[in-house]
Write a protein that binds this DNA or RNA. Structure first.
Lengths: 194, 194, 194, 194
DNA sequence: TATGAATGAGAATTCATTCAT
DNA sequence: CATGAATGAATTCTCATTCAT
């Protein structure tokens, strides 16, 4: 198992790994297949043995990494739409985001590109789904904004907080706290204004 | 054929306008100089008469449009760092963002690209400056996150809210309100926990 | 149509051959990659499969053709610095020059260009090395000039003599004779003026 | 006369000066009209007011600087073809070469380019003319080579000797001496071997 | 499971040149 | 005596993709 050069059949995964790393680091357009191939010490043609197109590499990465979000959505759909559920949604969303960090960072930083790739639609849908788990369709506009902001706070949290000093785990907790607070705010009004 | 080339002297501006439009719409890399030229019915070489490089076109746009942010920073630096000042900073920042909407949308959606363009550094600096107008250096981590989130809420507000129905002006006001609320939260603790 | 692309593996060499031919005939700058490609009936991109840049094509040619000069230098370094050795150096240098005729003609006629190509430094070094095999560091100025002239006579001999009628082999012999004579002159003074 | 900005009508000459300087320094093709214009702080179009084409600039320089060679040829044609005359031809040729140093250096280093410029023919003709002042049409091949070498020694002397230490005037004298010696050699045989 | 060799389309950029003003 | 604005043709180079082996 721990053979010297265990790369045996794992080439597909290695391509995905290197590709994601480079996509996240340099952007999708600026990462060429030549570059990916060189990092792996194979030829470009080898990439085409495993994937049909450049976009396909990206798609396959998404397929492998984005399932936690789907599971989250599936789970939440069956829960009562309470504040507590929403807080749990955020907690789990944070997990999903952090566990596939590079992928989401990539999407965050390559929106213009992603938009007309097939994953663009995919993600827009998921994002809207997560958002509708948090929002109340006929809540006032300000509350809608609060729930969107809660989601975006978490996305932004992934890269914008890097400039902030402090333990990563603490920062992550803080981001989650602020996001949950925003959702909580949404409920305050309900009791106040009967 | 009406007027052979009656556009006198405004070509430079027209290039900037078209370029920004296309950059915002399709992304920087996917917008070729050929495309820009065709939209203006001039040759690529004409672009090079007015600008030294593709990047230069973008730089010139930033120079022309980003001054409101600089003015805001200059103004705020001379104000007392009170809650009221901060709310006013956010209000003015909203103005700056909205008045150069396409530019900021472009930056938001092309982060990976912008990062290694000369405007990358420019903007990172400005963003940090705005942030430090809002934050208290030795505030608890959660408050730091709140102030960052306030800024990002406004950025996100520019494009993410498009999916939300409602009058644009109302949405803008709502975004500002939520952002200011986040900053206000920052002050609540201070009086509560002496 | 006879053989679709029966040329197997020799494309690299064919590129070098055609390139050198055209470089020598028209100059480096005036020879475009399009032209080289067309002569070979391949696309420009094919050239880039085999070489990284235009300059690289030239470099590779030099690497393949200039070794005789290196060998000459290596050999001469281990010989006693006598008149006879020097005459042999010239003889061998003539061989090297003639065997890679087009390359040296190219360098001779494109000095301004070659100067800021990577081969510029390479050749300057080799030329100085050959020269220092012939000269005596503390010989009088006139002798230094004689030895330089001997070298240049041979270079010039390659293209300037084309206007002269006569059998090429005879001309070559004559050039070598004159060059050796110049070196011999260098020794005459030594015995005369003690 | 010594007015602050005496450039009044001397623009033409200034263009020639700058152009020659850049041509000699960087080569003809690598020197663009933009560059020349920038060095003079005028627009490219201004160059076209004074000259019809890029090549024309070069032609005009040659016309202005090459006359000494013509005079030399005219003078020599009327002298007896003796050794002394030939030595004097070389002396005067040295003068001509040195007085228009940059031009000849340019030609020397841009032969491939010059060849298909109109000055190519011009110079080839002049060079052959000078050569035929020195050679005896039915001299043995070796003597023909000697006389060509004498001429080339002087050309080479202009740039190749720069690596040699020593006073420029001394070097020039040495080059001339070697060249004259080569011509003298031509005569030795005649008297020696009757 | 790969590679070697190639392609076609397109990118950014540079250049000499033109011409109305 | 010169400029501002533009053009057309070319150049080097890069990329995703293909396919026989």
């Amino acid at each position: 198992m721990a053979t010297p050069h265990a790369r045996r059949g794992d080439t597909r995964r290695r391509i995905q790994d290197v590709a994601l790393e480079l996509f996240a680091e340099q952007g999708y357009e600026k990462t060429s297949l030549r570059e990916i191939a060189e990092h792996l010490d194979v030829t470009k043609a080898a990439l085409y043995y495993h994937f049909r197109t450049k976009e396909d590499i990206l798609n396959s990465i998404v397929e492998d990494l984005a399932s936690p979000v789907d599971e989250l959505i599936a789970w939440a759909t069956e829960q009562p739409r309470t504040l507590e559920t929403k807080c749990e949604v955020l907690r789990r969303y944070a997990d999903a985001l952090w566990s596939a960090g590079p992928l989401f960072r990539f999407i965050q930083e390559n929106q213009a590109t992603v938009r007309d790739l097939s994953i663009g639609e995919t993600f827009k849908t998921k994002l809207l789904a997560v958002h509708s788990l948090l929002k109340d369709p006929d809540a006032p506009l300000t509350d809608q904004v609060r729930s969107i902001t809660a989601v975006f706070a978490m996305h932004a949290g992934m890269f914008a907080m890097q400039n902030l000093e402090g333990d990563p785990e603490d920062k992550r907790a803080a981001v989650l706290e602020v996001a949950q607070e925003l959702i909580a705010q949404t409920y305050r009004g309900q009791t106040d204004t009967p």
